[in-house]
Write a protein that binds this DNA or RNA. Structure first.
Lengths: 238, 238
DNA sequence: ATTTTGAACTTGTATATACATGTTACGTTT
DNA sequence: AAACGTAACATGTATATACAAGTTCAAAAT
């Protein structure tokens, strides 16, 4: 079965993005959408709640759904998106350099983070992201071999996430991220075009699969002037 | 009517935080919760979806709800929380210095951001946040007078959000945030204890009310070594 | 002219039912 | 011993109904 509420959600997203419902205008009411899509009100409400969660609309009781004016394109966006997906969406002129690709016993820190035995092996990838000819980002990825048994230089040069989702059939669920600002390491200075900047922005993520198993740890080190993070947040109900 | 699904959600949050359901354990099934709370399954599912959205659990089809191990305490946390709320939660030894408090005609940039007429007036507040004796953060707030007609030095020294929600009865809905790293301005160097750091982390937020009206713009400038942002993100469905 | 009332709309909450689909464990078959 | 099948149970989707509660606007009352 294809999920009705998801197709309706995607349809409405497309309409909002193509300005059928411009910012500050009202979406049709739930009842109108119900009869338009030949479905039940609850199904429409599921689709609208998805729109609301993702920052497309604001539901106002008694009134309706206001379309929000959210420019979702920035770099890097919040959420879980691979560099390749972002680069495509933003049409960046980008190149990826696979600096190292190793299959090693996990050192203590990584083993602890990935919650595995230090004798277990881990795929370790270091990649440099070049944007318009400048080396801007250093990505260090660590994969639990239990879920990602094999990586190749070719896969790393393309998109690891694409490989994980399409070839390995794993479903990525959620991530816990941390963003901090640190001093560049020797490696940062060596591999990136830091141009005298005395800080790098470091994004550390633990990425989990659909079934809540931890499969990846990532450290993404950015030149500060090229870093931008955009977030849509709702006030938590009390 | 008090909302059942919200009370159940809050009850479960409390239980998770007090380790009744420790990380990696399973919550009772939806049917068990249904009979325990004497309600319908849909109501339980609403509560569980809230837990899932806020990173407390991961639902796994066919299995149940896994409790996640997410340390939600960091500074500053994602979401919309006032400095005062954060400081209390984290038990920071903190002091707020109200540097300026003005009621002025909006300059062009601010008027544009707040989408008001340049002849309209705006409340402008600059506050310095001192943590353990060090001046770490410079907060610059701009309020649309239509929603916030009056501010006092006392209110600014306490919590503006508390005033807005409890005294003015406004309901904060959502925010659009941007995080970037910039060079310190003259004002930053003057007002903050920058200790030679050559960057500041700048968080710019547009904050909207429940009915999607824009009422505040904020610029929060942080010393980079004291900045930390934590985010819980779900992979967007395709 | 101003205020009040109420009908007709909107979204929010709660419940019930049905079936689809993924997981697990155990007994049966091979 | 291994493979298979199936029942029992888990969550996911779709629908229907009822009522609560906020918004709007026009008619009626003051």
């Amino acid at each position: 079965m294809q999920k009705k509420y998801l197709t309706i959600y995607e349809d409405l997203v497309k309409q909002i993005q193509s300005n059928v419902w411009p910012p500050s205008s009202m979406l049709p009411s739930e009842n109108e959408l119900t009869s338009h899509y030949h479905t039940s009100r609850e199904t429409i409400r599921k689709a609208l709640n998805l729109l609301s969660q993702n920052g497309y609309i604001q539901k106002v009781r008694g009134k309706g759904s206001v379309v929000l004016d959210i420019h979702k394109f920035s770099f890097p966006v919040s959420g879980i998106e691979s560099y390749t997906e972002l680069a495509e969406k933003l049409q960046l002129e980008t190149r990826t350099i696979v600096h190292t690709l190793d299959y090693l016993e996990a050192d203590n820190d990584i083993a602890k983070i990935l919650r595995i035995d230090p004798s277990d092996s881990v795929w370790t990838v270091e990649r440099i992201r070049e944007i318009s000819g400048e080396k801007i980002i250093l990505d260090k990825d660590y994969f639990n071999e239990m879920y990602v048994p094999l990586l190749s230089e070719e896969i790393c040069g393309q998109s690891i996430y694409e490989h994980i989702e399409n070839n390995l059939g794993l479903v990525i669920g959620f991530a816990q991220k941390e963003i901090v600002v640190e001093e560049p390491t020797e490696e940062d200075r060596e591999l990136l075009d830091l141009e005298g900047f005395s800080n790098v922005v470091v994004i550390r993520s633990q990425v989990y699969l659909d079934d809540a198993s931890l499969f990846q740890f990532t450290e993404s080190r950015h030149r500060p002037d090229k870093f931008r993070f955009v977030d849509f947040a709702r006030r938590v109900k009390k």
